[in-house]
Amino acid sequence: MPAFDLATQSKRDLNQRLHNLPADTNETHWTVANPAGEHAIACGLDAPLTVEIQGHAGYYCAGMNKLATVIVEGNAGVGVGENMMSGTVHVKGDASQSAGATAHGGLLVIDGNASARCGISMKGVDIVVKGSIGPMSAFMAQSGNLVVLGDAGDALGDSIYETRIYVRGAVKSLGADCIEKPMEAKHKADLRRLLDAAGVGPEVSVDEFKRYGSARQLYNFHVDNAAAY
């Protein structure tokens, strides 16, 4: 199991080595000690690796991830898992702003809280936040699912497109064109699948969640909605 120590080795070397691994590599499990909040750790991965970051990560950790599993043992800075395409990114602490921004696929799990703009412009990723999320989350969110076990801040889902949002706690306010929608059986099944994938056990019931999504009133410009744009 290759072990990397950012106290003595450079992030550039780490990322280069991870990028250079052949698709059929046996070196699939990496640990990274002393990350000390460095930016852009384990970004641009494109192979089924597991990378365990043993501490706090800075901005854009696991950015644009494909296939890999990246685990942050501490907190993560701005844009963790931004534009990820597939694979799993798991933050065991809290995440800063814009977690999972514009991400197209895969699963992002945040055990703690996520700050403002969580899931902004998300395009297909599934995000599960076990704590609460900050304001303006899921702004212009296009596709995928955002699950929140705690509360959501102001203007949740502003100008949302087709993303589905599930919140267990309180929503401070909904943004333009975002409304509560009925929880049907298929939504409950979907939510259960997401909770299972994020390691949330049956002690959390899907019946505790409300679903939010687009009213689809702003999809084509209409004069009388001008104030909402």
Partner: peptide, 27 residues
């Protein structure tokens, strides 16, 4: 609609980190 601001950075200090990320991704 295409947003007028980037979703995951604001201001020149963040831009510097964003550029670093793009460089890291493309070696």
């Amino acid at each position: 609609r295409s947003a007028c601001r980037h979703p995951d950075w604001t201001g020149p200090d963040d831009l510097e980190i964003k550029i670093e990320e793009l460089r890291e991704i493309t070696d």
